[in-house]
Write a protein that binds this DNA or RNA. Structure first.
Length: 934
DNA sequence: GCACTCACG
DNA sequence: GACGTACGTGAGTGCC
């Protein structure tokens, strides 16, 4: 039986614009920009992949816009009149789209005086009349009018098929009614007028209510008096004109027969030549392995960029059996264990999870290991179970050493992928038993690379949330086994039957999550950041955590003592001034003392109605001569330093290693930064002299020194590059003080005051400026702040454009991207709530800059140990990361050699994926302590 | 568990 | 006309 013909019509012109905004500015070996061409090429590849598949294309053609002139211009001379010129680095890519299409040996259709949309509509009509199926590859809303039985749309970027329900979801109407909605709302980009004051929501409401455009216009006079009613009456003809403009013309003369579009196997030679010419090496390799028409799905992402490499394994779509806890096996002898290890080797992949008696991977004792070799096929290997009652009988289990000896070759086998959820934890536990797990995949990090910023019902990238979100499965809760509070028991005390169900479920769920998340990476453009940055970072960060940093306990204790004495003295003086005793640490009591009892001026704030007593308020009062406010400020500083640092850090010293081991979260900060907990070593004081003493307690071992390497002004440099601000780029290229230069540009003179203001404004720009916010910081009026912002935009014109483009793209796509392809989602950027929306806008302006900076230092971290080893400096240890700073410990004699390597790795960390137009500066200092190294 | 405050980049 | 104002974090304290 002959297969039904299925015609794919690719809307090439609209795709290239979207690809341009989503992909990094790649250039080919000749220096021509090809980022959008690359995106276009991967899209064609993906489409060609579906040839021979059920419901895949049998016929395919690419339709391009040849000219912007059409019958619509004769009807309405303003049509598409205000289209901005395409960006400079996009224009040379248009002709390359044709080359790319020809490289795939596919037809490329373009006609004078006809728009691509009309050609698409005409071919679609022709094909449907012949009983073919049609898929339009586009996400253009005008084309959605064509959706009907037998015709759907495909959004390759979101990998979504769009049918009538997509129109209903977006516009609330059927595809047949969509033209009427578009006619009412108009289109700013194409300059279709519509009716002023009517947007998508109102337009769709009117059409749903009245059925079609003419009925709406006819009903207008009888509507209740309003601005909208008047507009409908006055501008009825504009709406009718708009209807004609948005209606697709489906009877254009067609240059080809449908049969010309038959899709054959793609000859490799022209394609190879094209890929070579433009340096698309990763696709070229895929082509070498197998042609696109019969290959496995090709991962998208940039041309090859060390470090990192693809997995050998690509998951196939999998029908997964339902989760059944009774299927899990408890492995209690070595023969059974060997059988599971053999299964894992045969599968080439295994999900691994360790069970321990503590959340602290540096102190946790291994209690058991679970493995999953296929969805539904999982086991638990108890290793440390047994009641704390030493006389009670312990369950039968394999001796820990025997199990480790058997598992180690599997866990270190290059040919078997180990999959984990937050694998960094397990890496640390197993490393303490001499096992160095590799290669790895981590479902938590995958989820973060795909969905950072996305708001789901249950937040986060933890396993329970992911299982619920992607598998619709509720995991057994840890607490239901161990209880909570005083009665909580260790996992080693949980009965084996329960422990098996819980632990094996974790491994099973992890493996299932991998089957859901792993295929999304290439489709959603997350492969680059995952494979080149975040995945290789996992073992690096694990190593830093295990190594820890030495802290001088006596020094901290002495500081605590000193702080306590000074606080006691201040406390007495404060109570004296207040005329009574009270808890200085209670903002509520302090506010009442200051404002009610002593009658100082200041306002209520916050929803609780309590007085604000934060540092800005107290500084102001102190400036006005309030002695008690000054003393409270001093007391607060000491209190903070003592409780958060000098006391708490002593308790964090690991009794076995004598060092402090922080835990970094790779998924903690939406922008891609790391975060640090237990203890947080990313907020150790430095800004005040008294706080800086705490840094002096972070010391090197005898004979060693601490080396601190900081990126200098990295975010401003990245802003200068990303917004393409020539003045700022020049200043960085010439090593100028950037705040001085800004002060010169803004105020015409450089002194302490103008430099300070310039610095504030520079940061304000990075954070998404508002005149109110800047006014507050600079203590000027909003109008004056606005004037400074205007001057800034005028002197640094690229900034304005960067902000506008970033926001436009964030609104359209729902996310922002860093130079290295890291996405952060901003679902609230279209919120109706102004404060919420504006908050998202500021965050969206900041995220690409902060995130790119995070990408760069992460790339440096991944390369650091291999580079040091290659230089014979394998004993240099990277200990800490503080966003733009790396801290090392090394023998005194190696400082010079190590500094050169560290500087080079950090300064060149963006290459070769991205070439920055500003140099990255790195400042290095050394000393016996972290404090001394600055 | 939340609000407030404050340490860092 | 009111809203609520710089981005990203984690931890300790008071209080309900």
């Amino acid at each position: 039986m002959a297969q039904q013909n299925h015609l794919y019509l690719v809307d090439g012109s609209s795709y290239i614009f979207r690809a341009y905004h989503r992909l990094p500015p790649l250039t080919n070996p000749e220096g021509t920009p090809v980022g959008a061409v690359y995106g276009y090429t991967t899209m064609l590849w993906k489409l060609a992949d579906d040839l021979h598949k059920a419901d895949g294309p049998t016929h395919m053609a690419v339709i391009l816009d040849k000219s912007s002139q059409s019958f619509r211009n004769e009807l309405y001379d303003q049509y598409k009149a205000h289209r901005p010129e395409p960006p400079e680095d996009l224009r040379p890519q248009f002709p390359l789209i044709r080359d790319a299409t020809r490289a795939f040996s596919m037809p490329c259709i373009e006609e004078d005086n006809v728009e691509a949309d009309d050609i698409i509509a005409s071919y679609a009509k022709d094909a449907l009349a012949k009983g073919w199926k049609v898929t339009i590859v586009s996400s253009d809303k005008d084309l959605m009018q064509l959706i009907q039985p037998g015709l759907d749309m495909l959004d390759t970027m979101k990998n979504a098929r769009l049918g009538p329900e997509a129109v209903m979801e977006k516009f609330g109407v059927t595809p047949e009614q969509l033209g009427d909605v578009l006619a009412l709302m108009g289109d700013a980009v194409d300059n279709v007028p519509g009716i002023r004051g009517i947007g998508p929501k109102t337009a769709s409401k009117l059409i749903v209510e009245h059925g079609d455009l003419e009925s709406v216009l006819a009903a207008a006079p009888s509507m209740k008096p309003s601005k909208m009613r008047d507009s409908l009456i006055e501008q009825a003809d504009m709406a009718r004109l708009s209807k004609v403009l948005v209606t697709l013309k489906d009877d254009c003369p067609l240059p080809n027969e449908l049969d010309d579009f038959l899709l054959k196997d793609i000859p490799p030679e022209p394609l190879a030549a094209f890929l070579t010419k433009h340096g698309f090496t990763s696709l070229l390799r895929k082509l070498g392995a197998s042609g696109p028409a019969d290959a496995a799905p090709a991962p998208s992402g940039a041309p090859s960029d060390a470090p990192g490499s693809d997995n050998a394994i690509t998951p196939q779509p999998l029908a997964m059996p339902a989760i059944n806890l009774d299927d899990y096996v408890c492995v209690q002898d070595v023969d059974a264990l060997d059988a599971w290890i053999a299964k894992a080797r045969a599968a080439g992949m295994v999900a691994v999870d360790t069970e321990t008696d503590s959340l602290d991977s540096m102190q946790a004792a291994l209690v058991g290991v679970s493995l999953a070799v296929a969805p539904g096929e999982a086991c638990y290997i108890p290793l440390g179970h047994g009641s704390n009652d030493m006389f009670a009988e312990k369950p039968q289990q394999i001796a820990l050493g025997d199990a480790i000896a058997r598992l180690k070759p599997l866990l270190e086998d290059d040919a078997v992928l180990k999959i984990g959820q937050n694998l960094k934890y397990d890496l640390n536990v197993l490393a303490r038993h001499g096992v160095h797990v590799s290669p790895i995949d981590d479902t938590m990090v995958m989820s973060f690379n795909l969905d950072a910023g996305q708001e789901f019902g249950t937040g986060g990238h933890g396993m329970d949330a992911l299982a619920d979100r992607h598998l619709g499965h509720q995991c057994i809760s840890f607490k239901s086994l161990t209880g909570t509070g005083k009665k909580q028991i260790g996992f080693n005390e949980v009965p084996l039957a329960d422990a098996t169900r819980y632990a094996a479920e974790d491994a099973d769920v992890t493996l299932r999550l991998w089957h859901v998340l792993r295929p999304r990476l290439p489709v959603e453009g997350a492969t680059r950041i995952y494979q080149n940055v975040d995945r290789p970072l996992i073992p690096v960060v694990a190593g830093m955590e295990r190594h820890g940093i030495k802290v001088d306990r006596e020094q901290l204790a002495a500081l605590s003592q000193d702080f306590a004495t000074r606080m006691a003295a201040l406390e007495g003086e404060i109570h004296e001034l207040a005329g009574q005793s009270f808890a200085i640490g209670s903002p509520k009591q302090l506010g009442e003392i200051l404002f009610d009892k002593l009658g100082l001026k200041g306002g209520k704030k916050g929803k609780t109605g309590a007085y604000s007593t934060d540092v800005t308020v107290l500084e102001k009062l102190a400036g006005e001569g309030s002695e008690i406010s000054r003393k409270v400020l001093d007391w607060r500083q000491l209190s903070k330093l003592k409780s958060t640092y000098t006391d708490a850090l002593q308790e964090q010293i690991n009794p076995n290693t004598g060092r402090v081991h922080t835990s970094y979260s790779l998924v903690g900060a939406q922008t891609g930064r790391l975060s640090s907990t237990e203890p947080n070593l990313q907020n150790i004081p430095i800004r005040t002299e008294i706080g800086r003493q705490i840094r002096h307690a972070f010391v090197a071992e005898p004979g060693n020194v601490i080396l601190a390497a900081d990126y200098s002004q990295i975010e401003l440099r990245l802003a200068a590059h990303m917004a393409d601000v020539e003045t700022l780029r020049d200043a960085f290229a010439h090593g100028e003080d950037i705040h001085n230069r800004t002060a010169q540009e803004l105020f015409g003179e450089v002194n302490r005051d103008t430099r300070g203001r310039a610095k504030t404004i520079n940061f304000a720009i990075l954070y998404g400026i508002s005149r109110w916010g800047l006014a507050g910081r600079l203590e000027v009026s909003a109008d004056e702040a606005q004037a400074m912002i205007d001057t800034y935009f005028q002197r640094f014109p690229g900034i304005n454009r960067y902000i506008a483009e970033t926001l436009a793209s964030a609104r359209e796509c729902g996310f922002t991207e860093t130079l290295f392809g890291r996405k952060t989602h901003f679902p609230r950027i279209t919120s109706k709530n102004q404060a919420e929306r504006q908050g998202s806008e500021r965050a969206a302006i900041n995220a690409p800059i902060q995130g790119t900076s995070a990408d760069i230092i992460k790339r440096a971290m991944v390369r650091m140990n291999p580079a040091l080893e290659a230089a014979g400096l394998g004993h240099v240890r990277m200990l800490l990361q503080v966003h733009d700073e790396l801290v090392f410990e090394l023998p005194e004699g190696d400082v010079e050699a190590a500094s050169a390597v560290i500087r080079s790795v950090m300064e060149n960390a963006a290459e070769p994926a991205v070439t920055l137009s500003v140099p990255l500066g790195v400042e290095i200092g050394t000393g016996p302590s972290w404090g001394a190294a600055h």
